[in-house]
Amino acid sequence: MIEERSFQFALEVIKLIKVLRAKREYVFADQLLRSATSIGANVSEASAGQSKKDFIAKMAIASKESRETRYWLRLIKEGNIVEENLDGYLDEIEQIVKMLTKIVKTSQLNVKTQN
């Protein structure tokens, strides 16, 4: 579920990137593109992890990237960089942050209880 959700989110962000680039907001576009697409890439890598520790490490990176993405979206919104309503993006990234946080915490707990 998180793999597909992060993929769909990245597709939506690509639409916003096009708007940012049209406004010549290249720094915001590049930073947002990197962090938003990194979420799904790390989630995808995690599912092929070689160990539980590897899985947790990749999911933790995805979690950090989701927080960075939230930061860039907030800057773009509160800095009035584009006229588009970013509430949908912010709502979705908040849900992704929560999901990834829960996955990481639960996985870490499971590893501790197995040892």
Rank of each mutant, 00 (worst) to 15 (best):
S66W: 08
G88L: 10
S35V: 15
L73K: 09
M59A: 03
V13I: 12
E45T: 03
V19C: 05
A36R: 10
E25V: 02
N110L: 03
K102G: 03
Y89S: 14
L11A: 13
V13G: 06
E92Y: 14
F28M: 08
I81T: 03
V97T: 11
I56L: 05
T113C: 01
L90D: 11
S107D: 06
K105R: 08
Q31L: 05
A10I: 14
E78A: 06
L100E: 00
R67S: 12
E83D: 14
D54V: 01
I93Y: 05
R74E: 15
L100V: 01
M99I: 11
L73S: 09
Q114D: 00
K18H: 08
M99A: 11
L109Q: 02
I76K: 03
E84G: 11
L109M: 10
G49D: 00
E45D: 04
K53H: 12
A29K: 05
R21Q: 10
A62V: 07
G79T: 04
K102E: 00
K112A: 09
A48W: 03
V82T: 05
D91Y: 12
W72T: 05
R5T: 10
A62T: 07
L86T: 00
Q95H: 09
L32N: 03
L16D: 07
I2N: 06
F55Y: 15
A57D: 08
A57C: 10
W72L: 01
K64G: 12
Q50P: 04
T69N: 09
L33T: 04
F7R: 14
T37R: 09
E78H: 15
Q31I: 01
L33K: 14
L32D: 07
G79K: 12
Q95D: 07
L33V: 07
K98N: 13
K15H: 06
R5G: 01
G79M: 08
L20E: 01
K52D: 00
I81M: 02
E84F: 04
S35I: 14
S47K: 15
A41K: 07
D87V: 08
G49H: 02
I93C: 02
M59W: 10
K15L: 12
I81D: 04
V19L: 12
T101F: 05
Q50K: 13
V111D: 03
E3K: 15
E4Q: 04
R34I: 13
I14P: 01
Q95E: 15
K102T: 05
E94M: 13
V111H: 04
E3C: 07
Q50C: 07
K23R: 14
M99R: 00
K53V: 00
A10R: 13
K18M: 11
I61M: 00
S51K: 04
I56D: 01
V19F: 09
I56Y: 01
R34Y: 11
S107T: 11
S47D: 06
E68V: 00
V104H: 03
K23G: 04
K64Q: 07
I56F: 05
A36C: 13
N42D: 01
L32A: 03
E12H: 06
S6Y: 15
K98Y: 09
R67M: 04
I76A: 07
K18V: 13
A29F: 02
S35D: 13
S66K: 11
N115E: 08
R24Y: 10
S51A: 10
I2W: 02
